[in-house]
């Protein structure tokens, strides 16, 4: 990890920490690095591919439930930069987990497939981002309820 900048290091740390259960970091790190090795066969610069994949999944707008006069509205708002990355990684891992349940193959294969799909602007996580943006654009008429 010598020649990476701060943001790239943070991204790899987040990738490992997000999937960690019961503090078993070594186990998750092995899965993430195996995924990186798989990605290295298809693309030379793995970190660039990973960053681009996460950037393609990052949502810009999201909806927040706001109660106004006894009615709950979905009010669109801007997503903070840290939360964008958090949501992107969460969705990628969630999609990989879904694939694993569906096709009964190892998690690193599923994660590899999902990251490649995200890089090519398709896949489950990309669809989820599209759904969120769709919901925000549907409720754009309630944007004036936003106070934050």
């Amino acid at each position: 990890m010598g020649d990476f900048d701060g943001e790239q290091k943070e991204l790899i740390k987040k990738l490992v920490n997000f999937r960690m259960i019961d503090g078993k970091r070594t186990r998750v790190r092995a899965i993430v690095y195996k995924t990186f090795h798989r990605l290295a066969r298809t693309e030379r610069d793995v970190i660039k591919l990973m960053v681009d994949a996460v950037d393609n999944i990052k949502p810009i707008c999201e909806v927040v439930k706001v109660g106004v006069a006894g009615t709950i509205y979905d009010v669109p708002g801007i997503v903070a930069r840290d939360r964008q990355q958090t949501l992107a990684i969460r969705w990628i891992f969630g999609a990989a987990f879904k694939r694993r349940i569906s096709y009964r193959i190892s998690l690193e294969k599923c994660l590899f497939a999902e990251i490649l799909d995200a890089y090519r602007k398709r896949g489950i996580s990309r669809k989820r981002r599209g759904n969120l943006h769709g919901l925000a654009s549907t409720n754009r008429s309630f944007a004036h309820f936003r106070w934050w």
Partner: peptide, 17 residues
């Protein structure tokens, strides 16, 4: 002041729609 980037957000959402 309290609602930053409102115009930009609405224009982006309109474009998406």
């Amino acid at each position: 002041v309290t609602k930053p980037c409102m115009i930009e957000m609405v224009s982006f959402l309109n474009c998406l729609a």
